[in-house]
Each structure stands twice: as C-alpha cells, then as structure tokens.
C-alpha cells in the first residue's frame, strides 16, 4: 500500500456510496474557468450540429415546451467533492436527439463563454443526460450554469457543461477545455479517471 503518513488518522465516515477518493459535501461548490456569463433566456439558443453539418435549433420557449423530467442524482466533482441526491428538472437528450439523424460516435458540448467538453454520444443517450434548467425547484442560477446546463451525472461534473449552447457531433473524438489541460478524456468517477492516463 506504499507509504504511511506519520500521525495521520483521517476523518472517515465519508460514506460507502461515494466513488474512490471523493468526500461528501452538503454545499454546492462552484468551479469555472472564467467569469460567469449572464445569458438572458430571450437570447438563449441550443443547437445540435451533426457530422454532416445539419443544424437543429431550439430557443427557450421550444426547450421548455418539451416534456421535462424530474431528476435525482448524485454528482461527483473531480476536485473531490460529491453531493448526493441532487434534484434537477430538464429535458432528456433522448428527447432532443430523437429526430436528429446521425451516425456520429462523439459529441462536443459548447457553452456560452467558450467552454467545451467532449462526451461519447452513447453517454448522452438512454436516460443518462439532460439539458437541465431547474435545480432544487428553482431556476438554475448563473453561477451553477443557468439558464441551462448539460447534466451528465455519471461522469465527473466538469462534463456537465454550464451555460450550454450546443452539441457538435463528430465521427472522431476531439478534446474539450479541461481534457486538453490534462484531465481525463472520459472521466468515470467510479474508475477514478481524473487525469489523462488514469
């Protein structure tokens, strides 16, 4: 097991339902790489661009007119905090992508403010991801990605792009913002895929 830290006992009690190396928080920490963009819903738009260049667009009214789901999920940040049983409301990517014709394997999420993150398309389907616009019964606060963010709770939370404005589908896997800066390309918290090569 390697070295022992002399005099360290640890706090324990983190819970058995946490992925390795995570600790429990009851707060909702904020992490982002730049200033928080403040996007009015009047100006908000979500675009899916396929590998052939075809575009599908939704404005705020169109998004919120779609069937929404109440989602309760644990979330895990690569900076090691986990928050259990968070509640969201949003539209499943299955719904948004239902009529999109694509054979692509990969998606790049793009955000207002320029953030990007890559996710395999299959991880966005089958009830695994949403465009979320409410948190804990309230409209999603800009600090936490409002008006709408991608929610992919089975991957480290940097994959759940705040201020999302679109997905670009592709046959090849490109790397997003943190993935280019040394973080893991996939980011499975249960396999502790924090950094490139983990």
């Amino acid at each position: 097991m390697g070295i022992v830290s002399p005099g360290f006992t640890g706090r324990r009690g983190g819970g058995t339902d946490l992925p390795p190396g995570q600790y429990l928080t009851h707060e909702f920490p904020v992490l982002s790489a730049g200033p928080t963009p403040h996007i009015l819903t009047d100006h908000w738009e979500f675009t899916v661009t396929t590998e052939t260049g075809e575009k599908y667009k939704w404005d705020w009214a169109a998004l919120t007119a779609l069937p929404a789901e109440e989602i309760t999920k644990d979330i895990h940040c690569v900076t090691r905090w986990s928050k259990l049983q968070t509640t969201w409301k949003g539209v499943s990517l299955d719904t948004l992508l239902a009529d999109v014709e694509t054979g692509a394997d990969f998606a790049m999420a793009h955000s207002y403010g320029g953030y990007t993150t890559n996710v395999p398309l299959e991880d966005l389907l089958d009830g695994q991801s949403w465009i979320a616009y409410e948190y804990d019964g309230e409209p999603l606060h800009p600090e936490h990605g409002g008006p709408a963010r991608l929610l992919v709770p089975h991957l480290y939370f940097w994959k759940s792009a705040k201020w999302v404005r679109g997905l670009v589908l592709s046959d090849t896997e490109d790397l997003g913002f943190w993935e280019t800066a040394g973080y893991h390309e996939y980011g499975d918290p249960w396999k502790e895929q924090r950094y490139a090569g983990d």
Binding site: T25, E27, V30, A33, G34, P35, T79, G113
Partner: peptide, 22 residues
C-alpha cells in the same frame, strides 16, 4: 467584465474546501 475587460482574458480559480458556501 463590467469595466470592459474581455471575459476570455479573465482566468479564474476557486479556492477553499469546496469553493466556499453560497
């Protein structure tokens, strides 16, 4: 940003146990 700085030239990092309570 309000003072006219380009958001793309502002890099941020949050500190603290969990980024601090809200």
């Amino acid at each position: 940003v309000a003072a006219g700085h380009d958001p793309a030239r502002v890099r941020t990092e949050r500190f603290g146990p969990t980024g601090g309570p809200r």
